[in-house]
C-alpha cells in the first residue's frame, strides 16, 4: 500500500508520510473573517492549492488543509477578499456570496439590484433562518 507521491518517491510507511505532511502544511498565518470573526490557520493563499493538480480556484483564496479528513490533498477554502470593498471575508453564507466573484454581504445589500433575481431571492430566504440564534451547542466530550 505504499503511496507514490510525485517526485518524493516511495515512502517506507505512512508515518513518514504523515510527518512530511506536517512540515508542508505549516500554517502561514491565521485567517480571520472581518465580519464574523471566524478564525482559522491558513496554509496557502492563491488560486492553485498545493498538492492538487486538477482543481483551480476562481478567486485568490485563503486555504487550509481540510481538517476533517486525513487526505493530505484535500483543501478547505476559508475565504477571500470582497471584490468591492476588499474586506477579508469567510465563505460562510452569513458573510459573503460568490457570484463569479466574491462579494461580502454588506456590499451585496448595497448593490442588490446589480444581482440577478435568483441571488436576491436567495438572500431573502437566507435572512429568515439567519435570525435564528446560534444552534444549541451540542455535546462536549
Amino acid at each position: 500500500m505504499c503511496v507514490v507521491l510525485g517526485s518524493e518517491g516511495a515512502m517506507p510507511c505512512l508515518l513518514i508520510l504523515q510527518m512530511a505532511c506536517e512540515t508542508e502544511c505549516r500554517p502561514l498565518g491565521v485567517f480571520k473573517c472581518q465580519l464574523c470573526a471566524l478564525t482559522a490557520p491558513y496554509s496557502y493563499v492563491g488560486q492553485k492549492p498545493p498538492d492538487t493538480q486538477s482543481v483551480v480556484l476562481l478567486e485568490e483564496s485563503y486555504v487550509m488543509k481540510d481538517p476533517f479528513t486525513s487526505d493530505k490533498d484535500r483543501f478547505l477554502i476559508l475565504g477571500s477578499r470582497c471584490s468591492l470593498c476588499s474586506r477579508l471575508v469567510c465563505v460562510g453564507p452569513e458573510c459573503s456570496i460568490f457570484y463569479s466573484k466574491r462579494f461580502c454581504l454588506p456590499c451585496v445589500q448595497k448593490n442588490i439590484d446589480a444581482f440577478p433575481q435568483e441571488i436576491r431571492q436567495d438572500l431573502e430566504k437566507r435572512k429568515v433562518p439567519s435570525k435564528r440564534p446560534a444552534s444549541q451547542p451540542s455535546s462536549r466530550t
Partner: peptide
C-alpha cells in the same frame, strides 16, 4: 450594465455554476 466595474461584468444570465468558486482541470 452596472457602473461599478466589479459589478459590470457579472454574468447576466443566472446560472448556479457562477456561484461556485472553483473549477476542474479535466
Amino acid at each position: 450594465k452596472h457602473s461599478i466595474p466589479a459589478l459590470a461584468d457579472l454574468p447576466c444570465t443566472y446560472d448556479a455554476r457562477y456561484r461556485i468558486n472553483l473549477s476542474i482541470l479535466g
